[in-house]
Design a protein around this nucleic acid. Structure first.
Lengths: 145, 145
DNA sequence: GTAACTGTACGAATTATTATTACAGTACTC
DNA sequence: GAGTACTGTAATAATAATTCGTACAGTTAC
C-alpha cells in the first residue's frame, strides 16, 4: 500500500477543519507535506467519488462536498487504495508440479482479499469527523478553539 | 509490508506438507521462487520463535516443530512482519502551527495500529493446516492424494 | 488578455524490496 | 582430520515501487 489513502484522509480532514473555504492544492500540499500535483491527482479521484467539489480558475480549489459525520475511512480506502493491502511480490509458481508451489499464489491472494475486508470493516467505524476530533484533541493544551 | 510474511506461510505450509522430512533452504527457495539466503533469514526467525527446528551440516535443513492445526497466521505475522501494515511515508509536520498538520502523523499511526489488530484478528482464524488444505484442494481434479 | 487555479502526463529522484555473493560455523562421512 | 553439505549472517548489487518536480492544456474570474 502506498500513502495515497493517508493523504486522502488528511486532505479531507483538513477541508472539514476549514468548512466554507476553498483550499488550493498548494495549501493542502503544504499541510500534508507533499507536492501540489500529487494532491491534485488524489483530489481528482475524491471528486469523481463525490467527496469534494472542485473549482478551476482564480479563487478555485477544493471544498468538502459530504457530511464528515457520514463518510467513513472505509469508503475513502475503497475509492483510493482498494486491493493494495497485499504485497506485490508473489510466492510459488503455477507451473510447478508440487501443489504447494502451484496453488500458494491463489491461496494467499484469497487470504489477503478477505483480510482486507476485515481491515475495511474497522475503517467503517471511523469517520472524517472522528479523525478531525482526534487531531484537534491532540494539542488541546495549547489550543484556544 | 514486504513479502516475508507470505514466504513464511508458504515455507511452513510446505514443511507441513512433507512432515518427517528435512527440507534444505535450497529446496524451499525453489518451491517459493526466491533465493536460499532469503529463506534462511526468514527460517532463522521462525526457529527463534519455535515454529521450526533446524539442523546444520550434511543432511540438515528445516523441519516443522509445531502442530499445524494450532499455529495461526496471526502468530506468524507477529513474528515476522508486525507493525508493517502502515505505509512508510508520513503525512503532516509536527512543527506546523496547524493542528491538522501537526497531529495527523500520530492519529494515522494510531489508526493503522488498531487496523493491524483487526487484520491479525482475522489471521487468528487461519492455521497452517488451513492453508495446506486450501493448496491441496486447489488442484483436486488432477490430484491422486 | 492575464493571472490563478485544476487535470493530467511524463521523466527524474528517492526509497524499499529482492537477489546475489561471500564466508564463518556446524555436523556428518569417510 | 579432511572433505562435503548444510545453516547463519552480513554486505553489496540489482530491481521495482514510490514520490517528486516540471510542464502544459484547459478553465474561470477580473
Amino acid at each position: 500500500m502506498n500513502s495515497e489513502f493517508t493523504i486522502a484522509v488528511h486532505s479531507l480532514a483538513l477541508l472539514a477543519h476549514i468548512p466554507e473555504h476553498m483550499a488550493s492544492s498548494e495549501l493542502i500540499a503544504k499541510n500534508v507535506c507533499t507536492n501540489p500535483a500529487r494532491i491534485r491527482k488524489i483530489m481528482s479521484i475524491l471528486r469523481k467519488n463525490g467527496f469534494v467539489k472542485t473549482k478551476e480558475g482564480i479563487g478555485g480549489g477544493y471544498i468538502l462536498a459530504c457530511d464528515p459525520n457520514e463518510v467513513t475511512l472505509a469508503e475513502i480506502y475503497r475509492s483510493i487504495s482498494n486491493g493494495t493491502l497485499k504485497p506485490h511480490w508473489c510466492s510459488g509458481d503455477p507451473q510447478e508440479a508440487c501443489q504447494v508451489s502451484a496453488n500458494m499464489h491463489g491461496v494467499m491472494d484469497q487470504i489477503f482479499t478477505e483480510a482486507e475486508m476485515y481491515f475495511t470493516k474497522y475503517l467503517e467505524q471511523i469517520t472524517i469527523q472522528t479523525v478531525l476530533d482526534k487531531v484537534r484533541h491532540g494539542c488541546q493544551e495549547n489550543s484556544q478553539q
